[in-house]
């Protein structure tokens, strides 16, 4: 009896396995970026991929497409430290790790950890902190592996609906988890989370899935339904239309952020905490918009 059952299971598994393996094509992400610095330098990338204190990267490797956003914590400006330096170096280092193949696609947390270690290996005494969100698409297994530390995040949209999303990590209201390097005298006084604290997840994607990765500047100002509305305008998977949509999302978020009467998700969230806040939340906004497409070399 037992053997019949187990045989049946094997057969079923083989059939199912055979079915799911029909798609042997490699996938890739077509990604466009857009963003705004807080002080309205519209869409201008400072150096490399930086919007205000936000930084991002898009990197390709033989085995995977990797992208990431990081939001430098602005409070460091009071210490005479440029907050964008930390987030930018973090993203540049991630990019380099990916390009040189020093990563495992299944472990984006690993990329974050080694990138953070490299920051400590720099002769320049870096200071600052940053949230980070990394998204890795494994080309052959069609799986999306993600790591998220703090309040940046991503959405996976399929047929107009959000099918997968990141969880926000906060210590308390408006204080996200963050990677940081503190000056020795402030050690302990500064919030510092280990890269291992990042929330990781894996998700199977299909051709045509839309992945939106962004910093809190977007999610605090634009609720899901508005984002989905914008995404509906996206008709095909060529780079130009993605770029256009990314731009219109970022622009809309930027406009809302400076609308004093708009009840933004951030304001609603604040109300839940008993704070009387109205209007948008002026912040740096970074949007990476990607579509899962077939891999062409």
């Amino acid at each position: 009896m037992f053997s019949v059952l187990s045989c049946g299971r094997l057969v079923a598994r083989a059939v199912l396995g055979g079915l799911s393996q029909t798609d042997s094509r490699d996938y890739s992400l077509v990604t466009a970026s857009c963003g705004f610095g807080k002080d309205a330098r519209k869409g201008i990338l400072k150096k490399g991929m930086c919007y205000g204190d936000d930084a991002c990267f898009i990197a390709r490797h033989r085995t995977a497409d990797v992208l990431g956003v990081a939001d430098g914590v602005g409070g460091w400006r009071d210490y005479g430290v440029d907050p964008s330096q930390f987030s930018e170096t973090l993203m540049r280092t991630c990019e380099r790790l990916v390009k040189e193949g020093r990563f495992v696609p299944t472990s984006p947390v690993g990329i974050l950890t080694s990138s953070y270690c490299e920051l400590l290996q720099n002769k320049v005494p870096l200071l600052g902190s940053s949230t980070a969100c990394l998204v890795v698409l494994d080309r052959t297994s069609h799986r999306l592996h993600t790591a998220n530390l703090g309040d940046s995040g991503f959405l996976v949209v399929r047929a107009g609906e959000v099918v997968h999303r990141s969880d926000e990590q906060q210590h308390y209201f408006n204080t996200p988890f963050q990677l940081s390097i503190a000056p020795p005298e402030a050690e302990g006084a500064v919030l510092s989370d280990s890269p291992d604290a990042a929330d990781s997840s894996s998700f199977d994607v299909q051709l045509g899935d839309i992945i939106l990765t962004a910093t809190d500047g977007l999610f605090d100002n634009m609720p899901d339904y508005m984002i989905l509305q914008e995404l509906k305008k996206l008709k095909n998977a060529n780079y130009e239309s993605i770029q256009q949509t990314a731009r219109s999302i970022a622009e809309q978020a930027h406009d809302l952020a400076y609308d004093p009467n708009y009840m933004s998700p951030f304001a609603q969230f604040a109300c839940d905490y008993g704070l009387n806040v109205r209007g948008g939340k002026p912040d740096d906004i970074t949007v990476l918009l990607s579509i899962v497409a077939e891999y062409t070399d």
Partner: peptide, 28 residues
């Protein structure tokens, strides 16, 4: 550099240039 990092290590000599034509003391 350190044995388990890539900053200032000899392994950086592999591959295309990271810094050139800039000058300076860089991790890459």
């Amino acid at each position: 550099g350190s044995e388990n990092s890539m900053s200032y290590t000899m392994w950086n000599l592999a591959g295309s240039p990271n810094v050139y034509p800039s000058s300076g003391d860089f991790t890459q």
